[in-house]
Amino acid sequence: GFTKEQQRLGIPKDPRQWTETHVRDWVMWAVNEFSLKGVDFQKFCMNGAALCALGKDCFLELAPDFVGDILWEHLEILQKE
């Protein structure tokens, strides 16, 4: 899971503390893990605080249908851990 990747890359547990690099690493991991298609990494050029502050509607505009939902749900789980 993502926990191993977080440990390997030194990504903080709390997504709100992520840098732009951490956000990119997470999106890249999720794309590979969940076989997601059509993700534009440029749209995720922000730090974790900005990403978490978007709200669901704005977040879902960053990625194609269903893909955004998967990313959003995973981000929500990470914020609760």
Rank of each mutant, 00 (worst) to 15 (best):
T19Q: 07
F41P: 15
F41S: 12
L36A: 04
G55M: 04
V39D: 02
S35H: 10
F34I: 01
W72H: 05
K56H: 12
L9A: 08
I11F: 08
I77C: 13
L62M: 10
D57I: 08
Q42I: 03
F66C: 12
A30N: 09
D25T: 12
L60D: 07
L60G: 10
V31C: 13
I70N: 03
E73G: 10
C45S: 14
C52K: 03
G48I: 00
L54T: 05
K4V: 10
V67Y: 05
W18C: 02
C58N: 15
Q42T: 11
T21Y: 15
A50R: 11
H74K: 06
N32M: 09
N32H: 15
Q7F: 09
W72P: 00
Q7S: 11
F44L: 08
L62T: 04
M28R: 14
R24M: 14
C45P: 05
L36G: 03
Q6P: 05
G10D: 14
L9S: 09
E61D: 13
F2H: 04
L9E: 06
T21K: 13
P64A: 04
D65K: 13
C52W: 03
G10K: 13
T3H: 11
C58S: 15
N47C: 07
F66P: 15
E33I: 04
L78Y: 04
P64S: 07
I70Y: 08
D14E: 08
H74V: 04
C45N: 15
F41Y: 15
F34S: 04
V39I: 11
L62H: 04
P64D: 09
V23G: 00
K13V: 09
Q17D: 14
D14L: 03
V23M: 01
E33Y: 10
R24K: 15
F59V: 04
T3R: 10
P12L: 03
W72R: 03
D57K: 14
L60K: 15
D25E: 15
F44I: 05
M28K: 13
C58G: 15
L75D: 01
G55V: 04
L51T: 00
K56E: 05
P15Q: 01
M28D: 12
D57V: 10
L75W: 10
R24W: 06
I11A: 05
C58D: 15
G10W: 05
W72A: 04
W72K: 00
L71V: 00
E5I: 09
R16Q: 13
L75P: 01
G10Y: 05
F59N: 04
H74G: 05
F66H: 15
